[in-house]
Each structure stands twice: as structure tokens, then as C-alpha cells.
Amino acid sequence: MATTQTPQVTVDEVLSELAALEDPKVRAVNERHGDDHGVNLSKLRAVAKRLRTQHELAQELWATDQTPARLVALLICRPKAFPREELDAMIRQTRAPKVHDWLVNYVVKKSPHAEALRVTWTADPDPVVASAGWALTSERVRKSPDGLDLPGLLDVVEAEMKDAPDRLQWAMNETLSHIGIEHPEHRERALAIGERLEVLKDYPTPPNCTSPYAPVWIREMVARQRAT
């Protein structure tokens, strides 16, 4: 039976392909969200799907410091192959929001070092790094809360979220909301914190989408849970 071979390509070939996909209209939209590229993500994913898993190529693409190349890298790497120190360095090199999001969700969450990095990053003075720690904390609140100090997390959110930079504030708000959604014993306090701080209360929310404002988000998701 014939086997399908992973295409062997160079970094320059991938960069050329991504450059050819650059669309000024897509860039204009992305730049409004802080992302410095103009490649349609569906087309970028198609490139990665064709390349399949190639960890060494992923590392080379990451080293280019180009956002589209880094996004492809995160899709074709082996998450468990990164040592802790490399993941820590990568999060500190990441400033484009989409790269940051994909690095945390597609790579770090699958790493055996996720918990150690969560603890380290949450306490980091760099708010972008700290936001990654809080994103991992939200994941634990939802999926494996045993051992987490939920009242202590609410203490930190209550004291620091209001004045946190945007990305860190968003991640802390997610943790607050998931505590309220998943843990009934802390729901009343989570709602009270959200109502008092009013973080994201006026965030523009499209029709048929749930507001990220914690009291609305918590109540909506709890209602859905009760309806099923």
C-alpha cells in the first residue's frame, strides 16, 4: 500500500506562499485587533494542513519572527516536544494577539509543562505573559479545579482586574466567569465582583452572541446548563 509522504519544503518556500496570500483588506481588519498580517486564516490553515506535522520546520518558521509564519508553526509543531524553557521564551517573544492565543491554546495546553508554566506566568510582572497564565488558569477552573484556591483567585481578580491592561484584564475576566459558571458555591461572589467592577460591561457584542461581561456571561451559561 502506498504511503502519503509529508511534503518537504524550505522556510523560504513557505514564506513565499504566505506572502502571496497577503490581502490588504484582511490586514486592515486584523490590524484593528492588533495583529500584523493580512493572511486569511482559512487559507493559512490549508497551508499548514498540507505541510502536516514538521517540528523542525515549525521551529525554523517561528525563528523568522513573522506572524503568518509563526501561526503556521504553531499548527505543524509537536506541542509535547517543546521543553519548558523554550515555551517560556516563546511566550515572551509573542506580541501579536492571535499568535499569543494559538500558542497558549494549541501548544501550551497540550504540554506536560502546562501547570508549571501556569503558576510561573500568572505571577509574572509582564501583563502579556501573565495573561497566558490566567488563560491556563481558566482552563483548570473548567476542567481540573482540584487543588486550585478558588477563593484566592477571586481575591486577586477583585483586587487587580479593574486596572489591569486589556489582555490581562480579559483573561482574568474569563477566570472570574468560569468560576461563577462551573462552581455554584462561588457563583454569588463571582457575580458580585463582576457587578461591582463592571469590567467589559459596555463591550460591543454582536446579536446572538453572549456578552463577555461576567454577570451576563455567568447567568446565560448557567441558564443553558439548566435547560439541558
Rank of each mutant, 00 (worst) to 15 (best):
T4S: 15
D65Y: 01
D155Y: 13
A123N: 00
A89K: 01
T122Q: 14
E174R: 05
L197S: 08
G147Y: 12
A227R: 12
E85I: 01
V39Q: 08
D35V: 15
R226K: 15
T6G: 15
P97C: 02
I76V: 08
D155Q: 13
L153H: 00
L51D: 13
T122L: 07
E31Y: 06
D35P: 07
L103R: 07
K201Q: 13
G34H: 12
A116I: 05
V128S: 05
V26I: 14
Q5S: 15
K162A: 04
L191K: 10
P7C: 04
V26W: 09
E85A: 12
R92D: 00
T228R: 14
P83L: 04
E13S: 14
L148Q: 05
Q54V: 11
L87P: 01
V99C: 04
N30E: 13
D101T: 14
T137S: 10
Q5C: 15
R196S: 09
V47R: 03
E185Y: 01
M221K: 15
R189F: 08
Y213G: 02
Q54L: 06
A116M: 07
H183S: 08
A227T: 12
H100T: 03
D126N: 07
R187W: 10
E174D: 10
A96P: 10
A48S: 11
Q8I: 05
T137P: 04
S16N: 15
D124H: 09
Q225M: 14
A135Y: 04
A73Y: 01
E160T: 08
V29H: 13
A135W: 02
T6M: 11
A114G: 03
W62T: 01
A20P: 10
A116R: 13
A2M: 12
R189S: 05
P97K: 01
P97M: 03
E56V: 02
P206K: 11
D65R: 06
T6R: 14
L74W: 06
S138D: 11
A227P: 12
V119H: 13
V157H: 00
V157M: 01
L103A: 11
V99S: 00
W170P: 03
A214C: 07
D101L: 08
T137A: 11
A135C: 10
S111Y: 01
V157F: 03
D88Y: 03
E195F: 07
S138E: 12
E17T: 14
E160K: 09
D36N: 07
R189I: 10
S211A: 05
L191N: 04
V222L: 10
S144F: 00
P215C: 06
E86A: 10
T205K: 12
E185K: 05
S144A: 09
A46F: 06
K43G: 10
V47S: 06
P204G: 11
K143V: 14
T210G: 09
R32F: 09
H100I: 01
L71D: 00
A89T: 03
L57W: 05
T210R: 11
S211R: 07
A114H: 02
L176G: 00
E220K: 11
R84W: 04
G152E: 11
A20M: 13
H186A: 08
R224Q: 15
G34C: 13
I193R: 08
